[in-house]
Amino acid sequence: MTLLVFGMVLALLLPILVVCRRTDVWHRLAAFASVSTKVAMVMLVVSVVRDDWMVGLVGVIVLSVGNGAVMLLANLLQGVEG
């Protein structure tokens, strides 16, 4: 299980690297979306492994609300650009 969490954090580093490097705003937004989902998944895994209901609840809320926030940002960006 520790191995799994390590692997997940390692995979999390990939989109973070993209965010730091890329200049195009849409690529950056997609990478941020990936980060949001992955962080929520890491939270869920950690909560389940530690048998902690509340952290898991926070993970589920982050999973849905975080994605919704990025969705709103995408809409806003389209309005600014178009």
Binding site: L29, V48, D51, G56, S64, M71, Q78
Partner: peptide
């Protein structure tokens, strides 16, 4: 033991993330 939470996460993940990909594609 924590199946309700995981099922909820599964549902919201699949539905929400898919629609989210659509929104990102359509808005770009």
């Amino acid at each position: 033991r924590e199946w309700p939470l995981l099922v909820l996460a599964l549902l919201s993940l699949v539905v929400w993330n898919t629609i989210f990909g659509y929104v990102l594609a359509a808005c770009s």
